[in-house]
């Protein structure tokens, strides 16, 4: 899932300071799971903003709504009648959701309350780790199911660099060296042969952004792309 982190409250206060009526728009999917922008987090953020407005002597109102997702048009429609009552929408979705909300309601200011961090997994309660950079050229079949492009700070595809230090990374001694992990995994699988081949050059063309994907089943026959 997509993992995001709320911006510092001071930044959010600064962003919304100029607007009297603000609607906080939560997102009930990824960012709800990672405790950054779901219904509960929207409640907390709204409460913090109200207290801050009062102590700073600003007359502001902060209302709340949480949509199932902000990356699907049908959910965005659910607030169509309410938006005109506000000076700004403060979205607690990932960057994709914020943009989709801003595109749908392009006559009102839409502001981001979160910083989007990565595509990752839950390591435990309240702790997530990046596991995919969405490179559009997956090599996990070659590397024992551990992504060198994501898990190695340099994204190396030909083995460890000289900075690998007793299984840890030169960039952060708390981070495992991806290539030590890959080596151990392939050894366990008795497939070290996969590590011996020279890797093809990385391909960046598939991940040129903005990327777009159209499912075959939904393409019309007369469309070529």
């Amino acid at each position: 899932m997509i993992v995001a982190e709320r911006k510092p409250i001071s930044k959010i206060v600064e962003m919304v300071a100029a607007y009297e009526k603000v609607l906080l728009v939560g997102c009930g999917t990824c960012v709800a799971v990672c405790l950054a922008g779901g219904e509960k987090e929207v409640q907390i953020l709204a409460q913090e903003l109200r207290l801050k407005a009062r102590s700073d002597g600003r007359k502001q109102t902060f209302d709340e709504v949480t949509l199932t997702r902000q990356c699907d048009k049908e959910y965005l429609e659910l607030i169509a009648t309410r938006v005109k009552d506000y000076d700004a929408l403060l979205s607690t979705a990932c960057g994709a959701g914020v943009q989709f909300l801003a595109e749908r309601y392009d006559s009102v200011r839409v502001l981001p309350a979160l910083d989007t961090r990565f595509i990752g997994v839950a390591l435990g309660a309240g702790e997530w780790q990046q596991r995919c950079i969405a490179c559009a050229d997956c090599v996990l079949d070659q590397t024992g199911g551990i992504c060198p492009k994501t898990m190695c700070a340099k994204g190396l595809v030909n083995g460890p660099c000289g900075g690998t230090n007793h299984g840890k990374c030169e960039v952060n001694p708390e981070t495992d060296c991806a290539w030590t992990l890959i080596y151990n995994r392939l050894k366990k699988l008795d497939r070290l042969d996969l590590m011996r081949g020279v890797a093809p050059l990385k391909r960046f063309k598939p991940s040129v952004h903005p990327a777009r994907f159209h499912h075959m089943a939904y393409k019309r026959f007369d469309e070529t792309d």
């Binding site: 230090n165 299984g167 080596y183």
Partner: peptide
């Protein structure tokens, strides 16, 4: 390097 084998590969 430790482990050495990945380095040798």
């Amino acid at each position: 390097a430790d482990p050495l084998e990945p380095q040798l590969i």
